[in-house]
């Protein structure tokens, strides 16, 4: 089985941010029938931001996906073509460019526990 610990870790990380009510630094894939499967296949090794910034043709997406499967992405065979369609539809050459966020201008000081009286 491929990296179950990694998946659990990513899930825990996302949950932690959700509970904290803060923006996650980890980008999300767009809603769609393949969102969950795509996240499971890709996010063990890298966040979705690497996907959402691409603007590729269907042929290029096919090539990238085959490379990633070779590199350990786990995907059921029947989902293969659906995932290519999902990526091509959302991140094709005609989509507007992805707007990347920035890191804080100054490092944010760690919040300290409040003094107790």
């Amino acid at each position: 089985m491929f990296k179950p610990r990694g998946s659990v870790f990513v899930f825990a990380l996302l949950s932690a941010y959700a509970l904290a009510g803060e923006d996650s630094p980890i980008a999300q894939l767009p809603a769609g029938p393949m969102q969950e499967k795509a996240t499971a296949a890709c996010a063990t090794c890298h966040e979705a931001r690497i996907i959402v910034q691409q603007r590729l043709s269907k042929a290029a997406w096919t090539k990238e996906m085959d490379k990633m499967i070779k590199w350990g992405a786990e995907l059921d065979a029947p989902d293969h073509d659906a995932l290519i369609d999902y990526f091509s539809a959302n991140f094709g050459p005609d989509q507007p460019a992805y707007e990347a966020p920035r890191t804080a201008a100054k490092a944010v000081a760690k919040s300290r526990p409040k003094a107790t009286h």
Binding site: D23, P25, I50, T103, A105, K106, V108
Partner: peptide
């Protein structure tokens, strides 16, 4: 990481940089 107040992502030691990938 840490999250700044305005939803900006904080990466300790890196200031005002464009995030192409966080992880």
């Amino acid at each position: 990481g840490e999250i700044a107040k305005q939803g900006v992502v904080s990466v300790p030691g890196k200031e005002g940089l464009i995030i192409r990938s966080y992880r």
